[in-house]
Design a protein around this nucleic acid. Structure first.
Lengths: 331, 331
DNA sequence: TTGTAAGCGTTATCAC
DNA sequence: GTGATAACGCTTACAA
């Protein structure tokens, strides 16, 4: 553990090296300079433990090398994973991550955006369903999972295709009637397309399909009721369930087992997200979001040179992965 | 979604309001100023959509309102949770979080510390087992789970006490012989005390206790071998297992079941961390780390006014929580 | 190629 | 209480 002296400035380095201030600056920025000088400056810098003051630098250049990430939390596995990747990708692009967790509180979201702008970040990546985002026209902004306008690029998984894929898989695995389950207050983001894709596939393929929106008041009763009302020969009729998230799927599987139904024998369940338990095993069969790809894409778009022609919406392909809650051969 | 005009400066506001530059500065910093002036300035600022440039401000004041958090990742539930709390607590203290994930790579850790210092952060909170941290003497530093020297405050859970508690609980719940399991390369952090506490309790209470360090080469063989070698009447002799982390505990439980042993009937398992699955249910019976308290404490120490007398090591109390892998009455 | 000097947007120190 | 003015540490013409 080494300790270094404090706060030497370029002026100090210049004096130490016996060169002009501008020369030091050039060395620090890799601008061609006499080899002899370069060495002198580098030695002086090392000796004094000099580090550029990026605030002074940022003030001049308006480039801070910081990108703000605004996200509901970092403790939910999906957000944690996404944050992790974004942070890593930004690092490889020479950028730092300013993290702001908002708990999806709109006021907080706007506050964080304001703060980010004050800090002159190079751009903002945000995951919010806030309809009244107050964004500065000229700080690059990329939204994840939420389409605002053509002027704000949005990156998301192919939620619609994922919904279709879930339906297709469930039928392929033997389910004749399908159920879609979703929980929580209605939002207006890309994830809503999971339901749309699911339903459209069923319609197109003439597969009976029912949709249940769970809410906080009724709890799981609508689900219980539906299952009880649709029984045939003592077995549930709807044997394929698609849940809007893995989280919900895990809960539903538990509920089903409590009801004496076995998963995947009696009923098959597919979730959405593709999260892994921390022993690297899937929570459930799931439509896997390409989280790493989403992170890369978001960063690429945010930092792209030519901001005049950006894709308004980028949907990245999802995949299906068995995870024990479906009757796959190889599961 | 509103859009604002770009980059007005204090000078612009001053001109717009018809006052001097200094007056604007005072208004922005809540320094007493004529009521009439204050109103004029505030209106002008709003009209122009003015926001302070914190880089210019930081250059002057050397206060950036940013704290760096250096952590292996944010995708592991424990780190995710910790990051979440730290970010929240910092926010309530008027600080922003600069996040750096290192994957515990030492080079990366030092690089991140260097970058943080360049960004003139108010302080650094780091979770690293890096022995050669290159830290600047005069940027406040708080370490989590790793004691360096008396000069660097360290915040951790009471790992030693947690180890004792685990042993005590296992015996209380009926185990006569105890096993400690730990995996991975040896580190030199506070978490090592889990083992020490566990052993010391056993010694003090004359309870037979065996320790196994799993490593990558041998895999779980040492564990299997030990279990096989210590059987009595067809039942394992060591019926209480303490794992150094919840993650390991989850794996061990799985292995035990594969061996035909049932948990918690045949063998009881306690982990460490107290993590919750994302459906808010514990992974296993566990010694719970006070993560939120750790976050608060780390931030408090980092930002404390008087840095002359700081606690070198703060160990926060842990608790035991049943989680289905022990034979607790109420589990 | 190297050195000089003018700002970048703030804050802080003064006279007023 | 208010308003010029000099820094803060750096980049970048531009002059040498």
């Amino acid at each position: 553990m080494k300790a270094k002296r404090s706060n030497p400035t370029m002026k100090d380095v210049a004096r130490e090296a016996g060169v002009a201030l501008g020369t030091v600056s050039k060395v620090m920025n890799n601008i061609p300079v006499g080899a002899e000088y370069r060495v002198r400056v580098e030695e002086a810098a090392k000796k004094l433990g000099y580090q550029v003051n990026s605030y002074a630098k940022g003030l001049k250049t308006n480039h801070t090398g910081i990108v703000a990430l605004i996200i509901p939390s970092v403790r939910h596995p999906f957000f944690g994973l996404l944050t992790d990747y974004i942070c890593q990708v930004l690092m490889t692009r020479g950028m730092r991550t300013l993290l702001a967790t908002t708990e999806s509180d709109m006021e907080m979201e706007n506050k964080c955006i304001r703060l980010a702008q004050q800090h002159k970040v190079e751009g903002i990546i945000a995951l919010t369903y806030n309809p009244n985002i107050e964004m500065d026209e000229d700080v690059p902004f990329v939204s994840i999972d939420r389409f605002y306008t053509n002027r704000v690029p949005c990156v998301a998984a192919d939620n619609y295709g994922g919904g279709q894929l879930a339906a297709e898989k469930l039928v392929e695995l033997g389910a004749r009637k399908l159920l879609f389950l979703r929980i929580g207050s209605s939002v207006i983001g890309e994830p809503d397309k999971r339901e749309a894709g699911f339903e459209s596939w069923c319609q197109l393929n003439k597969v009976p399909c029912h949709v249940i929106h769970l809410n906080d008041e009724d709890g799981f009763n609508p689900f219980y009721d539906f299952l009880r009302d649709h029984v045939r020969d003592g077995r549930p009729e709807y044997t394929g369930i698609f849940c809007s998230t893995d989280q919900l799927a895990v809960i539903i599987v538990k509920k089903l087992k409590e009801m004496g139904l076995s998963v995947p024998e009696d009923v098959q369940v597919i979730g959405f997200d593709g999260l892994m338990n921390f022993d690297e095993t899937p929570y459930c069969s799931s439509i896997v979001q390409p989280v790493e790809k989403m992170a890369e894409t978001a960063v690429d778009i945010l930092l792209s040179e030519d901001r005049s022609k950006l894709p308004a919406l980028t949907c990245l392909p999802v995949t299906y992965r068995p995870g024990g809650t479906t009757r796959d051969n190889e599961a």
